[in-house]
Nucleic acid binder design. Sequence first.
DNA 1: TTGTAAGCGTTATCAT
DNA 2: ATGATAACGCTTACAA
Lengths: 344, 344
Amino acid sequence: MMKYEAVTIKDIAKALGISTSTVSRALRDSYEISPETKALVLECAEKLNYKPNPAALSLKERRTRSIGVIVCEIANNFFSQTIDGIESIAYDKGYNIIITQSHESFDREVAILNFLASRSVDGLLVSVSTETNDISHFKELHDRGLPIVFFDRVVDEINTHKVTLDNFKGTYEATEHLIQNGCKRIAAIVNSEFLLITHERLAGYKEALANNGMEVDNSLIKHCFYGGIEAQEVEEAVNQLLTLRPRPDAILCTSDKLTTGCMSALSRRRIKIPDEIALIGFTNSNVSELMQTPLSVIKQPANEMGRQAAELLLQIVESKRPIKDFEKRVLTPEIIIRESSVKI
Amino acid sequence: MMKYEAVTIKDIAKALGISTSTVSRALRDSYEISPETKALVLECAEKLNYKPNPAALSLKERRTRSIGVIVCEIANNFFSQTIDGIESIAYDKGYNIIITQSHESFDREVAILNFLASRSVDGLLVSVSTETNDISHFKELHDRGLPIVFFDRVVDEINTHKVTLDNFKGTYEATEHLIQNGCKRIAAIVNSEFLLITHERLAGYKEALANNGMEVDNSLIKHCFYGGIEAQEVEEAVNQLLTLRPRPDAILCTSDKLTTGCMSALSRRRIKIPDEIALIGFTNSNVSELMQTPLSVIKQPANEMGRQAAELLLQIVESKRPIKDFEKRVLTPEIIIRESSVKI
DNA sequence: TTGTAAGCGTTATCAT
DNA sequence: ATGATAACGCTTACAA
């Protein structure tokens, strides 16, 4: 196709009959250039609509001013809000963000990682896929100096900045709330065992039960490996829970899709929420209060998480010296109690 | 920070005691290179984990293998699903996508456009901001050869590929459905008058009224300039509609935020949906059927729209010759009737 | 079959 | 104060 022919420093130099180095210096407002020349160059650059070529700059400066983002999927309330936050910070600091999705696949994650690393992003923001158990692909790149910041689904084994949620607190308080509302058999539909967040969220649930003198019954805990991306998974989990006797009188869900999937499954079976089964779960939907039964939720400060992760990453990227001390920021979940978890 | 020192062709050449051009050719499997040398080079490249430097390639090839995407906001069901579709196609063809948000601001859109267009992208996928009335910034770049494909919020004045919805059909059918359900005073809460989609959607609404022997009453049409990004706007629109006598008995909304905002406003006023006021609207939420009143919706094939837009853009980008004949693809909305629009 | 050298756009170094 | 040149990593005439 017709090439978008860009104006270069050479064009300016030619137009003005001076050398490219003078133009370059004038554009960067170097002290060695006379005011007259500067004015001339600036005016000419303006007139020709000169824009520096980022590829040339990248080559020279060995930086791309872009950062990669890996999430499991974009079309998800939590992640799209996080990306919103990331984009805001990146834009303010003059960085591009390159978005990719693992679709919860380990293989895809590895492929993407190579793709991005070879495209020389200056750094990476990562929330690992559900299938990710082995993290050597991240480790290797990180060891070779690629700045990485993990958010939400972080991994313990890599020493870098992390931004995550107080997952324990989220499920602890949600579970305790259910207990205080008279729930006796509280089930949990949770994510893959590979994910750290699953363990943290389960721990909060278990601890709340224990501290309230209740037994942890493993038959009440259902793992959905793909976090309910396919509705079938949640359907199955709910089915199994419903066959138990005595039946659970509450369900705690640990992700967006699990929560809405569970509500949908219960609704289809005409099970009354919260009377028959109370429901509370993680979600960042902005319509939770408009649900058939206004939904009690554990909400993540998603936008803020994205912003902080981006800030930390750019801090590493732009730091002159190697960073030794890494932070693990733990944000606080917002627990919003509505009707779905309050027995009458 | 410690720089991620990449392996270059030079390193391979040095290691093998051959020239860089030989290495380059071997890597690209040139016919001029002996099988032995090729094997050697490939093995060495593998061993050193050589990855071509994209900045150097960009500089040489005058292409970046990345495409820019401008949407009003990422954290929105419709747009995040569209981006999902775009990402899938881009990934398959080896392109990065660079996501930006205009936040419905014209100034921001112009700034972003310059940011992206300074040749850090090979092409652009755009859904214009609500404030965008003047499109000369796009026109200029497009005239200078930057491939642009518009989707959803397209503009008429630029001759390029476009992927949009049959907006007329969406509102026509939705309105007719309301009429057939006995609604007599059908209000519409719509987007900015600057947007073409607003006109198309309004036209469908008006035509359906006319074809069914009903008057178009302009007091029943409320514009929300920012499409309900701030809840206040929708609140106000609903307020005004409720003061009308006779009161409207149905509301049609033309965007995601308008629809949920309207439902929220009605709900807060304890107005029964659909008995007092029926409701139908555009939304790509995946929990519409879980709403307090299962929501009748006009749903866009968002993912598909993203895929098609990306395909068309890459078709331009990768075409050897200038493209003369541009397509306007018009996708069909899915109208899903649930309870919110069906008077008993 | 392989090597040399120029060039993509920019900046830093070293002249002048 | 300005210019020439080399370099960033890669590809590709052109030479050998």
